[in-house]
């Protein structure tokens, strides 16, 4: 507990200091609330949670979790297929990299045209941002299998499937989890972008609505919620990782 506190207090002090400076500056220079609200104003607005805020949070959370699950699953399946068929990997890996150079924000309107304003195009957007880090991390992890262990498995006559299940997959788990952690934080961003472009609920929609009313304080509340949601997703996966790779020796 004591060592935990030792790690936590420096950033905590930094954040409190930052908020204090912000508060002081806004009142010192009489900055208009619609340009930059003071932290106290934002806190008051968050506490009030007006405009059906929680419904929007709930909608975004559902969309995020759903899209993240699909994206991660697709990423894992792609990694698996490309790993097992080296020719396909050679052919498709460059395309995979290329696909990530298309900004999601540019692709999303197209998806709206093709698939309308329902759930499907939103899920596609989140899937597109989630599958890539998972697929790349999993492929990297599967490729790096320890050669000594690999040699051992082949010497005792293990088949391809056994080598995959008993060696390659567990060996790759830590890298796979680092990919999934990145995907978890990306998924919230993907959901917000999807909601900007066409939705009738969700934090992204709420932001657009408040923007048109110059409710800067409420936009800050939305940003805060996005940060909390991202941290929540990240923390959840980090917990799962801790359980799955509990065998890993602790560093240092």
């Amino acid at each position: 507990m004591r060592s935990w506190w030792k790690n936590v207090w420096p950033p905590l002090v930094a954040v409190i200091f930052f908020l204090l400076v912000w508060q002081l500056l806004t009142s010192l220079f009489h900055i208009e609330q619609w340009i930059l609200p003071a932290p106290s104003d934002i806190a008051r607005e968050a506490a009030a949670a007006s405009g059906g805020l929680w419904e929007h949070v709930w909608a975004t959370l559902k969309l995020t979790v759903f899209g993240f699950a699909i994206g991660t699953a697709i990423g894992l399946v792609i990694a698996l297929i490309l790993h097992l068929i080296p020719f396909l990997k050679q052919a498709l890996y460059p395309l995979l990299i290329l696909s990530q150079n298309i900004p999601t924000i540019a692709l999303a309107p197209l998806l709206m045209i093709w698939f309308g304003f329902g759930l499907l195009p939103k899920l596609i957007v989140i899937t597109l941002v989630c599958f890539f880090p998972v697929a790349v991390a999993a492929l990297g992890g599967l490729k790096q299998t320890d050669p000594v262990m690999m040699n051992y498995m082949r010497m005792i006559g293990a088949g391809k499937g056994q080598i995959f299940a008993k060696l390659e997959l567990p060996y790759a788990l830590p890298s796979i989890f680092s990919g999934i952690k990145i995907a978890a934080t990306y998924s919230v961003m993907g959901a917000i972008i999807a909601e900007w472009l066409g939705a009738d609920k969700g934090i992204g929609y709420y932001m657009m609505l408040q923007k048109s009313g110059y409710r800067t304080d409420r936009m800050f509340v939305a940003i805060m919620i996005i940060v909390v949601l991202s941290l929540l997703m990240f923390g959840l996966i980090a917990l799962l990782e801790k359980w799955f790779v509990r065998w890993k020796p602790k560093q240092g």
Binding site: V148, M149, N151, M155, I156, G157, K166, P170, L173, V245
Partner: peptide, 18 residues
Amino acid sequence: QQGHISYMPQQPALFPWR
């Protein structure tokens, strides 16, 4: 043919997750 010998390599090569 594979699978006819039992083998002990130079490094122990124990699987860390087992």
